[in-house]
Each structure stands twice: as C-alpha cells, then as structure tokens.
Design a protein around this nucleic acid. Sequence first.
DNA 1: GCAAAAGTGTTTCCGATACACCCATGA
DNA 2: TCATGGGTGTATCGGAAACACTTTTGC
Lengths: 238, 238
Amino acid sequence: MVVNKFINVSVDCVIFGFSEDVLKVLLIEQITDSQSNGNKRLALPGDLVYEEETLNTAAKRVLKELTNLDNVFLKQFHSFGDPNRVKEEKDQFWLRKFRENPDARVITVSYYSIIKMEQYDLKASSFAQDVVWIPVNQVPKLAFDHNMILEVGLQYLRDQIKTNPVMFELLPDKFTLNQLQKLHEIVLNKKLDKRNFRRKMQKIKAVIPLDEKLKGVSKKPSQLYFYDKNKEDLNGDF
Amino acid sequence: MVVNKFINVSVDCVIFGFSEDVLKVLLIEQITDSQSNGNKRLALPGDLVYEEETLNTAAKRVLKELTNLDNVFLKQFHSFGDPNRVKEEKDQFWLRKFRENPDARVITVSYYSIIKMEQYDLKASSFAQDVVWIPVNQVPKLAFDHNMILEVGLQYLRDQIKTNPVMFELLPDKFTLNQLQKLHEIVLNKKLDKRNFRRKMQKIKAVIPLDEKLKGVSKKPSQLYFYDKNKEDLNGDF
DNA sequence: GCAAAAGTGTTTCCGATACACCCATGA
DNA sequence: TCATGGGTGTATCGGAAACACTTTTGC
C-alpha cells in the first residue's frame, strides 16, 4: 500500500438554471483536439485547485475562467474520489492533452448553485470551447464521472427546495405564481394543487405582488410578483 | 500560480456516542514523541488515503486502524481544504514525525457516524496512543482544524436528527423513552414536553415495547423499548 | 363568443402544542 | 410513608390536502 503522494484535487460546479419551463444545468464543451473530430465532450465546469487557494476560492475562480460566471453563491455538497473516476479512455485522452500529470488520481470537490439564467453573460474560455444550458433530463454521457456528480447535485437541489425558499433564485426577478408552481412541480416531480400552492406562497412575507402584469401571451395576463430578500422570514416561511 | 501536484488527501471521522446522558465524540490521543513530554494532543481519528482505495474505504480502514472500530456506517459530510489547515507549529511538529511529506497541503474529507458506544471494543493502535470518548461540550483544542470539523459534524448530526430516525443508533438496543427524550433534548438543546414526546415516539411503528423493565434504580422501574429496523416506515415516521 | 390560462374559498384531517396529576418502587 | 422519577389524557390551533367553478383576455 502506497500513500497518496500524487493525488490531484479538483473542483466541479453544478449550476442549475430554469427557463422555458425546464430545469437546466450549465455544461461546457471541452476542447478536445485541433482537428475538432466532431467528438464533442460535455462536462461540468471544473478544474484543478491551485496550490495556495481554498476550495471555495478555487470553485469561484474555475467557474469564472471557464464560463465567465461571476459572483454566484457556491455551496460545497460532496466529494468524489473513486480511484478510477478519470480512467476511461476518453478521459485519459483529454487529460494527456491538458494536464501535467494525466495519470494522477483526481479527487474532486463538487459545488452547487442555482441562478437566474438571463442575468448572466456566459462566455467560454480556457479549455471550454462552448458553454451550454442543457435540460437536466436530456444530459448525454458526460466526461469523467460527471453524470454521477450531476445526479447527486440534483438530489441536493431537491433537498434544498423542500426546506429553504431557494426556488426564487432560479426565476427572473419578476415572476408569476404559475411559473413558480411549475418550477416546484418539475423539481419535486409531482403535480401540486394550484389553490393550495398559491395560498402558501402568498402567505410568505417576502413574496410581493407588483403593479404589473405579464403580457405578450394571448391569454389572460398573469400577475407578476417579486421576491424581497429583506423580508425573508426563515422561521415562518417553511 | 502553480497547480497542486503534491496535495495530500486524508479522511477524518467524527463518531458520536451517548452515555450517562451526555453526547460524546470519539477522539484519539496522538503519539507525539518518545519522551512523552506531557503534551498530549487530541485529534479526530483520521489519516491519509491510500493510492488505490475509494474515500469510503479509506475512512473505514483508518477508523479501524486507529481505534479498532469496525462495521460502522460512515457518511461523508464535508471536505476541508484551507491551505493553512495543518500549518500550526504543533501540527507541523507532528507531521514531520509521521508523514513523508509534512509540508504538503492536506485536504481532508470528513465522515460522520453515530454508534451504540457499549457495543464496541476500542483499542488504540498505529499513531493513536489512546482512544477516548469526550463529551462534546468539553472538547479541548484539537489537532489541525479538527475543532471546526467537529463543529460541522455536530451541525450535521442535528440536521439528521430532525429529519431521520437516527437517534436510536445512539442508544443501547434496549432503551427507555426517558433516555430517548434526554438524548433529543441534548442534541436539539431544548426541553421537550414529556407527554407529547412519548405520544409521538409510540406512534412510530418501529418502536416496540418489551416485556421487560429497567431495574437497578431505586425508583419506579421504567419500561424498556427496542427499535425494530424492519418496521421502519420512513414516510410515516418523520 | 370561444378557447385558453388565470384566479379564487371552504371544509376536513392531522400533527404540534400546552398543560397537571397519579403511580410504582426502594429505602 | 415518603421521596423520586415513571407514566398518563384532553382541548386547542394551525398547516396540509382535497375539491370545481368563474374571470379575463386575444383572436
């Protein structure tokens, strides 16, 4: 048995967004090689930790570097350390191109966030060729063990949503109660009763109706609300 | 900026027990040097991860090696990676004695468990000179950042106890409802109403009264119960 | 005027809380 | 017989769940 002298440590970010009534996750398209052999590989944004930075700092930096996402709240949720998690052929191929120690074992610390998609300006850089939002139920095979990381992240999100008023983070500043309900139904994967749901939301002090209605649709326009963080009451609301 | 070629990865275990109406945590007394300078250092059981083992395996192995605890459920709860988490003078002193790369940064993945104290046979070995149960509110300054890890572990336990029927893991097989209540009160740090608490517990299908009473005390003997895992109903109980 | 989505109230059930006295035992 | 901790029942409140029709708009 040999002790781990040459382990690499990375961070990976699972960032959720919500648009067009679909829950999406932020992925990067990895640069693979110059011939661009059509062999696109999608991955969670993630990279190695620097020598002198904390894990949280690393997560923020890496996310910024790869996707240009900045100033988002990131929360660590799990670490993955299977010795074979980066040993598939495609993984190795990529690692040999981009890492100094492609054979090293990599242990990764994963972070999660939920954001209002339309408020950020994404831009791929570093080894990210592109940045894309993919519906969580249409995610293909990802690099490394990123499918597993996503799965655990999704579970984490579901747990969060049951106990904290976090879903407002996913909606635009101005949202309708129907959007909010759809979001809940999607994340919890079950239908909710409209009247009960509305009553419950309207009882939350931080949920404020605006003098404005949503327009553009050829239906009865719906009331817009916003979420006032200053009025959060974490004891009473959930 | 230099990438992390020489990071060490370790696991640390926060094991909780309950006896004499006190919540305790399992600590090891580190061997420091041969002169045994009276400078005892307490630490969570933890050590470096081997090259070819998963994090979970490492946690089990390390716990067994240091304390002889075996076959306990271990759950990962957080990773700690501050670049300076092992840089205090005493930490360095110890590392230089026991580690090949004492200057390496160490990132640690922490695990938690709760056990029935009296059912295990503890025995210090490896660099553990002794194994001790310390009441959580009497824990002195520990090695490295272990006080912080313990704090986070304790918070994790509190969250668990609110949502899962885990406190039975901490009590002997046969327990009284009063013991159970005391345990709750200690972990949640508030008084509970006896009648309400008992009604609630007795409604749980897995809580089974025995034909036996506790004796030895010079009072009315209390009814003993046991927790039948086969009858767990995780939807109904909490 | 009609199709489509928005919006609205009442009842029932259950878990959570509050609260005070009698019981069984060993000394 | 008494001191000590063990054990018991009821009433109230509030949140969760079930349930169906009317309203507003664009076309």
